[in-house]
Design a protein around this nucleic acid. Structure first.
Length: 454
RNA sequence: GUGGAUGUAGCUCAGGGGUUAGAGCACUGGAUUGUGGUUCCAGGGGUCGUGGGUUCAAUUCCCAUCUUCCACCCCA
């Protein structure tokens, strides 16, 4: 037996029905992006590793797919280095390129490289696959699509508000009920500063991020383990047990962190955003969630995360404000904010909730049965005419048995079959059969399109 | 990186230390030579993941290894 073909771990093929559904998601997202005036760009699947390395933290570097240099990739390596078996050092010599890990960093690179041609504030969207060398599991893939929208070159909080509107619009159009969680890195920094552990901000946010998963006791335990002082942990408690509306929560936090300049700024930002939001209709639930930390270390202001209210799958959209993403590429003082929709997880959610429209099919509307040479020639112009009128039309390519051709139409969900044999040809007609009802009628060829369009 | 499951026909999965390993779906042909879906009959298709061990005998038991899936970490 021939070797069984497989695809790499964490990757998937998409069948026609899946593509029809995926395109429904992409089209919905794209339409909303465009309504808000965003313009599309694309960047290469691969970037130079120097562009990608160090942008996603230590973990991120490990999750980058690296591409072996072309040609004799070992020729430039010193044999003594080979013998050290230090793969991370060796990597930099034998691999100069990597697959993109997200769309934000390549976008930052794009902005820096094209700064003279870009009109700022730049509103772009980008829908492309990204790759992560993660262990795959439910809702986690090694190749998946992100749909990013970013506004770069504007500090206005109006942008944050627009992104929330976009999230709300898109999920409304998709029929998915979501909770939009918002937090602010400045508030997190303020908390860390207040309890005197500013340099431990990462440990602290990672720990409180787990609050709803492992509970307050375990979080305290973990903080203690990470070396956060007992006094600091004590000060942290009121923040871990906030209650009330978003505004009430803000009031409570402000009391705790009022001496931190950064923290107060973060509070003010959140108040501004919530104020704007009172002016517009938002259907999604919006929740100020202090436990929301988000891993990517370039966020500096507001951070967002969207979760499905009915399906447990992790976040389906995430993003935030980054004040100096382009700084690492030599263009400082440019603030941006953006979010990313995870198309694959949205797909999983919608499939589970059975939210795809029933008629998402890409199959033809009508199939012409192939009876023979003479009949083919009779049908061909009629087929061409239907196609010119925008009707998805197929003619069966082989002169197979009719049973097989009918079965083909049936299996593909083609609703109409056109039969033109000797008797139809002699009358200049077509027999049109409705595969759902079994009904047949004899029509003139130019009547077909109007019946099919009903 | 850690832990748990998994691997038998193209696909989904049963089974079992002993002659020739099964089912459904799919495919091919027939009942039905211009009428699909339902039904019936027949047919093709297997290194039982790989390597080793125990045994008179292993696809079955044991060990290792790989694969895929699930959980942790982290994330969309």
């Amino acid at each position: 037996m021939a070797q069984k073909p497989t695809i790499p771990k964490g990757t998937r093929d998409f069948s026609p029905i899946e593509m029809a559904r995926r395109n429904f998601i992409f089209d919905t997202i794209k339409d909303v992006f465009q309504i808000y005036g965003f313009q599309q760009i694309e960047t290469p699947a691969m970037e130079n590793l120097t562009t990608l390395m160090g942008k996603y933290g230590e973990e991120g570097d490990k999750l980058l797919f690296k591409i072996l240099n072309s040609g004799d990739f070992l020729s430039m390596v010193d044999p003594s280095e080979l013998n050290q078996f230090n793969s991370s050092r060796l990597t930099t010599k034998i691999a100069e390129k990597g697959l993109r890990y997200d769309l934000t960093v390549p976008f930052a690179r794009y902005v820096v490289q094209n700064q003279n041609d870009i009109v700022f504030p730049f509103r772009r969207y980008q829908i492309q696959p990204v790759w992560r060398a993660d262990r795959p599991q439910k809702g986690r893939y090694r190749e998946f699509y992100q749909c990013d929208v970013d506004i770069i070159g504007s500090c206005s909080l109006l942008n944050e508000v627009e992104l929330i509107q976009i999230i709300d619009n898109i999920y409304k159009n998709l029929g998915v009920r979501v909770t939009i969680k918002i937090n602010n890195r400045k508030i997190l920094a303020g908390i860390a500063e207040t309890i005197g552990e500013l340099d431990r901000i990462v440990d602290i946010t990672v720990a409180i991020d787990k609050l709803d998963k492992i509970g307050i006791l375990k979080v305290n335990e973990e903080l203690n383990l990470k070396g956060v002082s007992a006094e600091a942990i004590r000060k942290l408690q009121p923040i871990l047990s906030l209650t009330g509306s978003n505004i009430e929560k803000l009031d409570q936090i402000e009391q705790v962190i009022k001496d931190s300049e950064t923290g107060v700024k973060g509070i003010a930002e959140m108040r501004t955003i919530f104020n704007y939001l009172t002016l517009i209709d938002i259907e999604s639930e919006i929740e100020l969630d202090l436990t929301l930390a988000r891993g990517l270390n370039y966020y500096t202001g507001a951070i967002f995360e969207v979760k499905s209210r009915h399906v447990e799958i992790g976040s389906i959209t995430g993003g935030g404000r980054y004040d100096d993403l382009t700084g690492i590429f030599g263009m400082s003082g440019v603030s941006g904010v953006g979010i990313s929709f995870g198309a694959d997880r949205i797909y999983d959610v919608m499939l589970q909730l059975d939210l795809f429209p029933k008629n998402t099919t890409s199959a033809a509307s009508i199939l012409f049965i192939n009876f023979g040479d003479k009949e083919e020639k009779y049908c061909l112009p009629i087929v061409a005419d239907l196609r010119a009128k925008g009707i998805r039309t197929e003619i069966y390519p082989d002169q197979d048995k009719m049973k097989k051709q009918m079965n083909y139409a049936n299996r593909k969900g083609i609703k109409f079959v056109a039969l033109a044999g000797e008797s139809e040809i002699s009358q200049g007609m077509i027999t049109l059969k409705n595969m759902d009802t079994g009904e047949q009628m004899l029509l003139k060829p130019d009547q077909l399109s109007s019946v099919l369009k009903e």
